[in-house]
Amino acid sequence: MTAPRPPLLSVRDLCVSYGAIKAVKKVSLDVFAGEIVSVIGANGAGKSTLMNAIMGDVRRESGDIFLDGKPLARRSFQVVAQGLSLSPEGRKVFAPLTVMENLMMGAFPRRDRHAIDDDLKRVFTLFPRLEERRQQYAGTLSGGEQQMLAIGRALMSRPRVLLLDEPSLGLAPIIIKEIFRELKLINEQGTTILLVEQNARQALLLSHRAYVLQTGNLLKEGLSSDLLQDPDIEAAYLGGGHKKP
């Protein structure tokens, strides 16, 4: 995992502020091709800000971001064209559009009709429930289905790195298990994943490496399996080691 090769996505000394509030302070992280990397942290730690700043949706104050060694663009549509896509916090599916239309929005910048069809098949194989509901309005889906749609929609741009902001938010444990199983599969099929989560246990169980974010600062990083055993992490994020999925 730590062979000396260049990272696919590299964030260097990123700072982001909302007026006087410093939400992300000098954060640096690397995501290597093929990895699942998670960033765990409590509510308000700056996880969404980090993701939105990478996507160009929130303005960076300072710092650099590189994709495959090249500087990442600063406007969302250019970032997507360069190969990142985000499943945003709270799913944010287009409620008045159908499942199919939502997925087509995910493929908006693409012109390769046939490859789009292949990706559509891939999404429907991962989430068969979406195929059954392809003509249904996204607003009428259950929370879990909306999350599947948000992930599927992000996959439709065929991203080099898939960014996921709290895919477990507000979902029943059984649905979380199902979604995380598909995320593992998506990664095994070759998609690199950067995941931010409050649900530290699920995130650490899924990811290869992880970073811990606390009030905008990176506190720790390491192999997810090590962090799962770390007593500090256990006390702060895993509820003392027992119960709570």
Partner: peptide, 24 residues
Amino acid sequence: TKWGLAIRAAAYDLRVAGLMGVNV
């Protein structure tokens, strides 16, 4: 049309339409 779809999506959520790669 594709841009028509993007406009309907943006009418619901302009920010997320931008995240889909639409030049807002």
